[in-house]
Structures are given as C-alpha cells and as structure tokens.
C-alpha cells in the first residue's frame, strides 16, 4: 500500500515537473496530492487526508487550472530574466530544504516512539483531536496563518478595486 501511494506521489510529481503542457502538469499535481492523501491515511491521519483532498485537490488546483484555462497560456513562456546563478542557488536551497527536513523527521519524537513501541495499528486521529490540538498547542501559528490570509485577502481586494 505504502509503495503504491509513494510511487503514485513521486511518479506523478516527476511527470508534472517534466510535462510541457501546463494543464496536464496540473492534473499530475492532482494525482500527487491524492497520493499524499493516501500516505496520510496510511499514517492513520484520515482528517489530514480529507483536508488535503478538499483544500488542495478540490479547491486550489481547480482555481489554478481555471486561471490557466482563462489565460489560455498553453505554451511555456521564456523566463523573464534568466540569471545564470539562479539555478545554482535554487539547487543549493533545495538540498538544504531536503536535508533539513530529513534531519528533522529523523529526530522527531513521534518516529522514535514509533520505533520503540513497534506499534502497527494506531487509532486514527479524529477531527475533534485535531481541532483541540490546533487551538491549544499550535494556537500562535494558527492565528498567524489566519492573519496572513487576511492580509493577502485585503491585498487582493485593494489590487482589484480601483476606487475603494
């Protein structure tokens, strides 16, 4: 099961990256999200899986595809300023990101406790637990994200509205 979802995720992610056609690439991204949702379920966190599908696959990518279709940009446009060192910076940053996340995951308490306990079946996380967690332990990041979204919303409105 894990292999199937992992292959789906990685395969469609790669296909997305190498796909010339923007819309097909977007659809591969959807497949990636579905694979990630499957991985979430295997981690016995179905709530995240459902939210992943509802929010990312169901809403954000639909909007993305909508915009792509509306702009009708079927051909790839050349990048505006093709700085030669840009790709090296990107490569370095990517390596730092991947390495950092690997180190973080290996150090995480959950993984260690899992390897100690040899647990095979964990009770699935429910929405109630997740909500409680969000409102107690992670309330600051929750509020910050809310604020950020509000700011971006106001920004979008002020950009679109000519006369406030």
């Amino acid at each position: 099961m894990f292999l199937a979802f992992a292959l789906l995720t990685i395969g469609s992610a790669l296909a997305m990256a190498f796909q010339k056609n923007v819309i097909v690439a977007g659809l591969f991204l959807v497949a990636t999200f579905i694979g990630v949702a499957g991985l979430f379920i295997l981690l016995s966190n179905p709530v995240s899986a459902a939210l992943q599908i509802i929010v990312y696959a169901g809403a954000i990518l639909v909007l993305l595809l909508f915009v792509i279709m509306m702009l009708n940009a079927h051909e790839e446009e050349p990048a505006q300023d093709d700085l030669y060192f840009q790709r090296y910076i990107a490569l370095g940053l990517g390596i730092v990101l991947i390495g950092g996340s690997i180190i973080l995951i290996r150090q995480s308490q959950l993984l260690q406790s899992l390897s100690e306990q040899q647990v095979h079946h964990i009770a699935p996380v429910s929405l109630n637990q997740m909500g409680a967690e969000m409102m107690t332990n992670h309330v600051i990041s929750f509020e910050i994200i809310g604020l950020l979204l509000l700011v971006s919303m106001i920004g979008a409105i002020s950009l679109v509205k000519k006369r406030l």
Partner: peptide, 13 residues
C-alpha cells in the same frame, strides 16, 4: 476518522 469529510472530499474531485 474520515467520516463525512470523505464524501465532501470526493465531491471536490
């Protein structure tokens, strides 16, 4: 753990 989120998620797809 998925409950009624599941049909909503599928409906989104």
């Amino acid at each position: 753990g998925m409950g009624l989120l599941y049909p909503l998620a599928i409906g989104g797809l």
